[in-house]
């Protein structure tokens, strides 16, 4: 009987461990291959210029980042691509500098066929804590299904890991019994 119980525990542990590892590998593959990033930077939520915001992180008023405006499918080098609300975001872009931002001229200016980024980040606050807010994630809309996919992945992983741990303690023969609740 004890052998049967141990066998069941071993199967439970191995099965859920394999499921967890499988999920883990799948998520890492989807992340590193760029598939997940394409879901995130899906369409523009306003009119403006799609950019790779990482390029502008170190720009200053003295050393602004100068981006050439060009109509292409992919950002290669120092380029900003004009997009309208609802357009699919070009490859390698992760933020949209809005026309309103350019019009205000406080952080970005339009000079002929170039865009000059002078103030790449602002200090903002979340729950009383400060952080640097850049152009990254601004003016973008994610693939609507990516939210459901994220939640499904997290729930599957949570369940699988929970059952791995349960299988492991069963396998070790740890007696985790129901607590008798009485008043």
């Amino acid at each position: 009987m004890a052998e049967l119980h141990r066998g069941k525990a071993a199967f439970k542990f191995c099965f859920w461990l394999a499921a967890s590892v499988g999920l883990f590998v799948y998520i890492i593959h989807s992340y590193t291959s760029g598939q997940m990033i394409q879901w995130y930077y899906y369409t523009a939520s306003l009119d403006g210029y799609a950019v790779d915001a990482n390029l502008s992180m170190n720009a200053t008023k003295d050393k602004p980042l100068v981006l050439n405006i060009a109509k292409q499918d992919e950002v290669k080098g120092l380029v900003a691509i004009p997009v309208a609300k609802g357009d699919r975001l070009p490859k390698n872009t992760n933020g949209v500098i809005s026309l309103a931002e350019i019009k205000s001229g406080k952080r970005v200016t339009l000079e002929g066929q170039t865009i000059k980024v002078t103030v790449p980040w602002q200090i903002k606050e979340a729950k009383g804590f400060k952080y640097k807010d850049t152009f990254k994630h601004k003016g973008i809309r994610t693939n609507p299904w990516s939210g459901a996919w994220n939640v499904a992945m997290v729930l599957c992983l949570g369940l699988a890991l929970g059952l791995v741990a349960e299988g492991f303690t069963d396998l070790l023969g740890m007696k985790i019994e129901k607590i008798q609740h009485g008043h």
Binding site: A126, K132, D133, T134, H137, V154, G162, A165
Partner: peptide, 26 residues
């Protein structure tokens, strides 16, 4: 960034909550 911290936090809470729920069920 703050918005990312909140989002990551909430999503991790969902997964972690499920891990704990499995054990509390037992």
């Amino acid at each position: 960034p703050g918005y990312m911290a909140s989002g990551i936090d909430m999503t991790h809470i969902c997964g972690k909550g499920l891990v704990s729920t499995v054990r509390h069920r037992q």
